[in-house]
Computed example of a mutant assay.
Amino acid sequence: MKDKILLKHKILFSIFGVIILFSLVFGTGMRMAIKQIEQQIAKSNNASLQVYYNTLQSEIERSEVFITNTVYHNDAFDQFLALREDPGRSPFVGEIMDRFSEELKDNQDVAAYLLYDTGTGVRGSVFNSIVGYGSVKEEITDSFGTFLEEEEVPLGWFIKRIGSRSFLCRVMERDNTFVVGIYDLPQASKNAKLFYSYEGEIVFFNNQEIFSNEDFIQKNGIYLNYLDDSDYYFSNSKNYMVVQKQLIHFKVALISEFYNSSVVLKFLYMSPYLYIALGFVTVWILIGYLKSILFRPMDSLVQAMQKIEEGDLNVRVEEQGGREFQKVQQAFNHMISEITTLKIKSYEQQIAREKAQLYALKMQIRPHFFLNCLKSIFGLAQSEKIG
């Protein structure tokens, strides 16, 4: 019987142990697998962003070379400056504009090229056909005209906001004549989606501002970390994965939905927590099992023994726990009953013995008392007679 009991508990504890080990091992394994999935998706997104980054960087470099060549190494521009006071220089303006138009055909992310002669007020502009600005064209032209005449022009590439749009700009000047190349960053983000079909959104930003897809960022509450140089990071409790690269003095980021992008991915991501929860539930069940078959019956026995030690033989143990403990409790109750019966019989025998002794004592006392009484009477009579 003892061997069967031990075997039963060994099997139960082995099952609990296997479940807990399974939960821990598979939970850890799935977490590592999810980490690998994260890294693979981030690697893919980084590769996609790298393609666009390389394209954008080459376009910016090409614009830099184009503007430099136009300002310093172009015959039409030289003639335009040489004939500044001559009304007949307009053909050279047209030639410069044609040169701008040809460049826009091959450099799709450039929104416009502008020409400003602040000395004579001559202006020219060419806009990319994809942009389709409408009335915004006049805003851009007028804004840059005022900007070049009234403000100190920054060196190199810089960001300029006109209305609700942000523009990446490059200005070169020669003899108070400026050539301006403009990247419309919101449109550049749309072009990236159009030309490269990214699973996500392209965002330009720096520490203070978001230059494109601002509505998308605000709507989803996405946090962008300009100082993060890791391969990827998550925003909004892993709802969005962010990969980013430095471009001039701002960053370009590819933001893709991660956690909610796939039901399978969501399940895989939750599975480690499910396995860990299974382990905790198993431990809780094991503790409850031990409490029901061991701790409660043991406490009950200990309390009963304390009452017996205090002299209370009426106490009985409630049968609970496993069959083994129930048998122990039945034996304990039977033992207490036998002890109570034996004690009662002992009391009864002792009382009977005391009664018999008392009766015998009474029988011994009665004759002597009668004889003494007679002797006393006889003694009194003799005394009366003598007197």
Rank of each mutant, 00 (worst) to 15 (best):
L21Q: 04
L21N: 05
L21A: 14
F22A: 14
F22R: 09
F22K: 06
F22S: 15
S23N: 13
L24D: 12
L24Y: 10
L24G: 11
F26K: 03
F26R: 06
G27I: 09
G27Q: 11
G29K: 06
G29F: 12
M30C: 15
M30F: 15
R31F: 15
R31K: 12
R31A: 12
R31Y: 15
A33T: 05
A33S: 04
I34Y: 13
K35Y: 10
I37L: 05
I37K: 05
I37D: 06
E38F: 08
E38W: 07
Q39M: 07
Q39W: 04
Q40R: 10
Q40T: 15
Q40G: 12
Q40N: 11
I41E: 02
S44P: 00
S44A: 04
N45G: 00
N45H: 06
N46H: 00
A47L: 10
A47H: 13
S48N: 04
L49T: 01
L49I: 01
L49Q: 00
Q50V: 09
V51F: 08
V51I: 14
V51M: 10
Y52I: 01
Y53A: 00
N54V: 00
N54F: 01
T55C: 03
T55Q: 05
L56M: 01
L56S: 02
Q57I: 04
E59Q: 07
I60F: 03
E61D: 13
E61S: 10
R62Q: 04
S63I: 01
V65M: 05
T68K: 05
T68I: 00
N69G: 07
T70I: 10
T70A: 06
V71P: 11
H73Y: 08
H73M: 05
D75F: 13
A76Y: 06
A76R: 08
F80Y: 12
L81E: 14
L81A: 09
L83W: 10
L83V: 05
D86W: 02
D86F: 07
P87A: 03
P87H: 04
G88D: 14
G88K: 09
R89S: 05
S90A: 12
P91W: 05
F92E: 08
F92H: 11
F92G: 14
V93W: 02
V93D: 01
V93N: 00
G94R: 08
G94K: 07
I96A: 05
I96C: 09
M97C: 00
D98E: 03
R99C: 14
R99S: 15
S101M: 02
S101E: 10
E102Q: 11
E102F: 08
D106T: 09
N107T: 11
N107S: 10
N107K: 03
Q108H: 06
D109Q: 02
D109M: 09
V110W: 00
A112K: 01
A112N: 04
Y113L: 11
Y113I: 12
Y113C: 02
L114R: 06
L114Q: 11
L114K: 03
L114T: 08
L115D: 02
T118K: 08
T118A: 15
T118D: 10
G119R: 12
T120F: 14
T120V: 15
G121F: 07
G121T: 09
G121L: 09
V122G: 07
R123I: 14
R123E: 06
R123D: 06
S125T: 15
V126T: 10
F127H: 14
F127N: 09
N128G: 15
N128E: 05
